[in-house]
Design a protein around this nucleic acid. Structure first.
Length: 252
DNA sequence: TTGATTGTTACCGG
DNA sequence: TCCGGTAACAATCA
């Protein structure tokens, strides 16, 4: 596989060849992607809010938009548009990256205890903590509101009042939902949609909604981390009951 | 043309 | 040192 980059954001004759060799593996740590090449070098990609990866069959086609990187294989090529991070890391850079990211809910080697210890020591609201990628990795803004609603947990509850049992419900629900999201290439959090596996681009319970699907009460919207957050104060009380909602996802 | 947005980081003040 | 707020940046679409 040939790795070509275009720092100017325009893929043209000015593009430079960074590396020749086979991409041996692609690995994810939270929202960070590592395309691993020979000699322990990796292309580090973070798509941010707008980044996109497009895989196409050869022959090469003109780049669409501002292509930052093009990976060329024997049958396909991959264009990467608009990543927040786009750089080559050596082994020490890779280790530093992994070290600063919290346990990834999708990785079987992740240790949720590490995330819980950070949450347990923090006065910050749980809604902020579960989206802090250095605490735990994987949850984004939509999943934040959806998971906390599904588990009946108010996002404004301070981390240091969250019990291990409550935290574990968040962790397990996140792991289930994200795994389904990967499989279906869509953010799906509505229980019915999880059961009936029809093709769907998105399905939310309270994110962007006006009324709670459970109690039909008004959904309150506010900001955490300057990001939109949705909460049903009836179904997500500040004092969570041991099991406030029966929502749970069967392992897929 | 403007605004909004599935995200992250640097920087600054409390 | 920690925590929270703000700005900057990314690309695309309505």
């Amino acid at each position: 596989m040939l790795l070509v980059s275009s720092p100017q954001g325009r893929f043209s004759e000015g593009a430079s060849v960074l590396n020749k060799g086979f991409c041996e593996a692609v690995e994810a740590f939270g929202k960070h992607l590592l395309y691993k090449f020979q000699d322990n070098y990796a292309l580090h990609i973070h798509l941010g809010l707008f980044g996109r990866i497009r895989k196409k069959k050869l022959p090469l086609t003109p780049p669409r938009g501002a292509v930052r990187v093009r990976l060329v294989g024997t049958t396909h090529h991959v264009d990467i548009n608009g990543p927040t991070i786009c750089r080559v890391l050596d082994q020490s850079g890779i280790e530093a990256l992994i070290k600063r990211i919290g346990p990834d809910v999708l990785r079987p080697d992740a240790d949720p205890e590490i995330a819980f210890q950070k949450i347990h020591r923090s006065k910050a609201p749980i809604g902020r903590l579960i989206m802090d990628q250095s605490v735990m990795a994987g949850i984004g803004n939509i999943y934040r509101s959806e998971i906390l609603w599904r588990q009946g947990i108010n996002p404004e509850i301070p981390g240091n009042t969250i019990t291990w049992q409550t935290f574990k419900r968040i962790w397990d629900d996140a792991a289930n939902l994200l795994a389904i999201g990967v499989k279906r290439n869509a953010i799906v959090t509505v229980e019915d949609e999880l059961v009936f596996k029809k093709r769907i681009s998105k399905s939310y319970n309270i994110f962007g909604q006006a009324h709670c699907p459970n109690c039909n009460g008004n959904i309150r919207r506010f900001k955490i981390n300057n990001r939109r957050t949705f909460v049903c104060d009836t179904c997500q009380p500040m004092q969570p009951t041991p099991r406030a909602k029966a929502n749970s996802v069967e392992s897929a």
